[in-house]
Design a protein around this nucleic acid. Structure first.
Lengths: 218, 218
DNA sequence: GCTATCTGATAGTCCCACTATCTATGATGG
DNA sequence: CCATCATAGATAGTGGGACTATCAGATAGC
């Protein structure tokens, strides 16, 4: 409950309608909004400040439907402090990003947050000796297109106009987490298949015992 | 430089070989290790503590090649405090994860960190009114397989045995960032294509001006 | 009327990633 | 040889982020 007050203070959550100077009424939308906030923070790993930006975008009625998805997606590139010692392979990486965009026929400018994030990731890979990793970019891009198509299709099928921005925010952030987890699982499977034991690896979760969640206090 | 000392203290970086009580020699491996650390922290968004675990895994010579990939991948699920008020849709989500695993024929137990992460993400999506998002899981899973295959292929082609764990660590963490960026770009393209203007959107990065990196101090 | 509860505001706590200071030792160079 | 200076190692401090606790003041309900 004190956390809620905190979010209100931070502007993430609108204050409840005051029925009297000391009594506020919270409605359905508040609960919904709070769940959104928690999901973005806990699952998406966003900072409170980032959530604020997302919320602002969600609440802005001015957004044209066009580039709204892109814009919203744009706003939530989480990390990257900037890195002043850029030089490294960043310039090259940016070029590579540009090449990829044209090769794929993707609209979008390499200077966008997403493009820059890609360049940073590529540069980081290069700096640890994995410049060849760029070779798998086509496969990654293919997969990304697959996912993006699925996202769009889902949005078109199930999402009302007025919920568009919120859904994009959710899909972008939680989708990342979702896909990351799936990638992990697919990797586990693939590696077990390639290097692994004869056949059996799967089971009902014998080791580690992930079943008990109680591990943190609040 | 003080940061390096800090990492040494935290056990992320081995101390340099002392040539005399006040002079230490750092070699190639140190630089390499430092770059790995920075990449994991800055691009991968891992905490120092998580990096420590990854490093420990990388340095452990006991790991059998089998399940090493999976194990390493397992170790770096970043987020999720645990959440004691689990109940929600988590139980259902776990079931859904199990179904997905069997449907896909993926080896791996739903109770693994990755499986749990997936369940958490699904539950979060459900809690904000997007339970239908599960419908796109097959597409996501397909994409994840694509990516995982590309990863494995890359590893098989370019990575020596003794660098395996490190490469998996890098690939897992930086690959997430890479793919997230690509997904953003693909989404921007797809949405621009669907809702967007007539044809032109791409360009050479006119707005925002991402070119100047200098924004933080160190 | 009395108390328990809620609002809003202010201040404090805890954790994390660093960063600064301090001391002893030894390098460097005139 | 001796003064200056840099460095290793240890200890303590800083700053930011996300909460959390405390404190009036104002009812709501008994």
């Amino acid at each position: 409950m004190p956390t809620i007050k905190f979010y209100v203070r931070e502007g993430l959550l609108p204050p409840g309608r005051l029925t009297s100077p000391n009594q506020a009424a919270y409605e359905e939308t508040h609960v919904r909004r709070l769940r959104l906030i928690r999901a973005l923070i806990e699952v998406g790993g966003l900072s409170v400040a980032s959530v604020g930006e997302v919320i602002a975008a969600v609440d802005d009625p001015e957004r044209p439907v066009h580039d709204l998805l892109g814009e919203a997606a744009e706003r939530m590139v989480p990390r990257y402090g900037g890195g002043e010692e850029a030089g490294d392979g960043l310039v090259e990486a940016r070029e590579r990003v540009g090449e990829l965009l044209t090769a794929r026929g993707w609209r979008g400018y390499p200077g966008s947050a997403a493009g820059e994030a890609l360049a940073v990731a590529l540069a980081a890979l290069g700096s640890v000796g994995h410049e060849r990793f760029a070779e798998v970019l086509p496969a990654y891009a293919e997969a990304a297109e697959l996912v993006a198509r699925a996202d769009l299709e889902y949005v078109g099928r199930h999402v009302a106009r007025e919920e568009l921005v919120e859904s994009v925010a959710i899909g972008t952030v939680l989708g990342d987490a979702l896909f990351a987890a799936l990638r992990r699982l697919a990797q586990i499977d693939a590696s077990s298949r390639l290097y692994g034991g004869p056949e059996e690896e799967a089971g009902d979760g014998d080791r580690c015992g992930e079943a008990e969640p109680g591990e943190r206090e609040e």
